[in-house]
Design a protein around this nucleic acid. Structure first.
Lengths: 259, 259
DNA sequence: CGATCGTTTGAGTTTGATCAAATGTGGTGG
DNA sequence: CCACCACATTTGATCAAACTCAAACGATCG
C-alpha cells in the first residue's frame, strides 16, 4: 500500500519538479499529507455540480474531466485531469461547485483535507510555490481552450488537443515514444472540442489518412509531431513546461531511452 | 489624489466584500499596499504576451481584456477585467505571460509590487482569503466562457455575455437601473464571442427587435432581464455572487434606491 | 444470442463566414 | 463651414463548415 502510494506520488512530484526541484523532506511531506486512496469507476462522478466543496484531491492514476451540463442536457467538457494533477488548491473558498468532475477511466485519487493543505502550504514555501504554479498552469490551459473551441477549425481543434495532451502526459512520464494511453471515446472528444461526434469521426479519419495522428483503442499515436503541431498552430509555451518541446524533443531532463 | 484613490479602492473593497466583510484595518492595508496610479490609453497594452511578469495590478477605473493572438493574426479575447478586478495574484510564479492584456477604454490601474502582495497575504488572512476568492471566481468565469463559445448559438453567446457583464458590474456598483457603461465595439464583441462582426451586428439587431437588450453608444441596456437570461440559458451561480440574482433582484445587501 | 455502445458512412440542412458595398459619425484641417 | 478621413455599423448575396438525421457495422458483455 505504502509502496503503491509512493509510486503514484512520483507523478505528482515529477510534475511539481517541472517548476523547481524539491528536497526529500518536501516530497515526504506531500506523501504524509495524503489521505488514503479512493477509487472511482468509469463515468462515476468525483464531485458533482452544486455540491459543497470538500477538499483538495490528487489524481494518482487514470483520467478525469471537468464538465458542465447545459440546460438542454448537452455536456461540455472544460478540462482534463491527468495523473499528477491536483484539483483546485483552494476550492474550499467557494461554497459550491459550478461544474462536475467525472472519471474518464477507472480512477485512483487521494484526498488532502483542508487542514493538511494548510500545513503543507505554511510549512514548505518551495512546495507551496510549486503547488500554486500547477493551478496557474491549469488556468493557462483553460484560456487556451477558449481559443481552441472559439477560433479553430475542426482539424485544428483536435490536433491542438492532441498536442496538448501529449505534452502534458510527457511531463509526467506517461508517453512511450510517440504513443500514449488516452481513454476517450469519440463522443467524449466531441464534447470537449465542441463538435458533433460524426464530425470528429471524419476529422480523425482525415488525420490518419494525412499521417498526422492516429487515435483508437484508447491510444493516441502521434505520427508526425511537427506536422501535427503545424496543423494545429500549437505553441507549447502556454503549458509553461520549461523543457520546451518546441519541436520533437522530450523534456530536457532525465530523458528515457526511446522504446 | 488620496481621495481619488480611496474612491477607486471602494470598488475593489466592494468586490471583496462579496466574499466576506472586511474590517477597517484590512481596508486600510489594501490602500497602503497600492503603488500610485498608472494610466493607459484605449488599445494600449498593459502587459504583452511573452514578456516577463512583473507584479499584480488592480483595475481602478475603465475596462481591459485579456487576449491571445493566433498565428494567422486573428485575436481572441479570453476575459474581461472590470473595475475592482485584480490581475493574477501569483503571476510572478510564471516566467512569462502567455497572453496580453489591453485597455478597452482609458484605464487607470495601480500596481502591487510582489513584496506588498506578500505582506498583505501574510498579515491579513481574511483579506488573503478574499483575494484568493476573486481569482477562483475568475477561473470559473473562464470555464463558463469555454462553454459559451463552444456550445451556444450566436444569440445565446451574446446574451450570456451581456448577462454576465451586467452581473459583474452590478457587484461593483457600476450599473444604473437596467443600464451600464460598456465600452466595446461590435468588433471587440465579435472577438470575444468568436463570431464575425457582421453576424454580431445582425444578432444585436435581432435582440433589440425582440426587446431583450440594446447595445450601442458604449452602453448596454437590459430590456427584459428574465427573457434575456432565459434566451442565454444564464445561471449566475458560476459567478459565486452569493446575492443570487436568480431573477431581477440586485445583490441582497446594501441595495441602492432604484434610479 | 440479443443488447448495448462506439464507430463509420451517406444525404440533406443550417448556421454563421466571407466578400462587398453602402451608410452613419466624429474628428481634423483648410 | 465644408471636405475629407478613419472607423463603426448596417445590409445584401454567396458559400462552406459543421450539424442533424438515419442507418449500417462491429465490437463487447451478460
Amino acid at each position: 500500500m505504502l509502496r503503491t502510494q509512493r509510486r503514484y506520488t512520483e507523478r505528482l512530484i515529477r510534475r511539481l519538479q517541472q517548476f523547481a526541484p524539491l528536497g526529500a523532506e518536501e516530497k515526504a511531506a506531500v506523501v504524509a499529507a495524503m489521505n488514503g486512496v479512493r477509487r472511482f469507476d468509469y463515468r462515476e462522478d468525483v464531485i458533482r455540480q452544486g455540491n459543497r466543496t470538500e477538499g483538495v484531491f490528487i489524481i494518482l492514476d487514470g483520467f478525469a474531466c471537468r464538465y458542465k451540463m447545459l440546460p438542454d442536457g448537452r455536456r461540455h467538457i472544460v478540462g482534463y485531469l491527468v495523473p499528477g494533477d491536483l484539483c483546485d488548491l483552494r476550492v474550499f473558498l467557494l461554497k459550491h461547485m459550478d461544474h462536475s468532475i467525472s472519471a474518464l477511466s477507472p480512477l485512483e485519487t487521494t484526498m488532502l483535507p483542508p487542514a493538511n493543505v494548510m500545513t503543507l502550504l505554511d510549512g514548505f514555501p518551495r512546495l507551496a510555490r510549486a503547488l500554486w504554479w500547477t493551478t496557474l498552469v491549469e488556468e493557462c490551459i483553460t484560456r487556451e481552450w477558449i481559443v481552441n473551441v472559439g477560433h479553430r477549425s475542426a482539424l485544428e481543434r483536435i490536433a491542438h488537443l492532441f498536442c496538448e495532451v501529449f505534452c502534458r502526459l510527457e511531463a509526467v512520464g506517461l508517453t512511450r515514444g510517440s504513443e500514449c494511453h488516452l481513454p476517450l471515446t469519440q463522443i467524449e472528444l466531441a464534447d470537449t472540442v465542441a463538435l458533433s461526434a460524426v464530425h470528429v469521426n471524419r476529422t480523425l479519419m482525415y488525420m490518419r489518412r494525412k499521417n498526422l495522428a492516429k487515435f483508437g483503442d484508447e491510444t493516441l499515436t502521434i505520427l508526425d509531431r511537427d506536422a501535427l503541431q503545424a496543423a494545429a498552430g500549437f505553441d507549447p509555451r502556454y503549458l509553461h513546461l520549461e523543457g520546451g518541446n518546441t519541436a520533437s524533443g522530450g523534456s530536457s531532463r532525465r530523458r528515457r531511452a526511446p522504446a
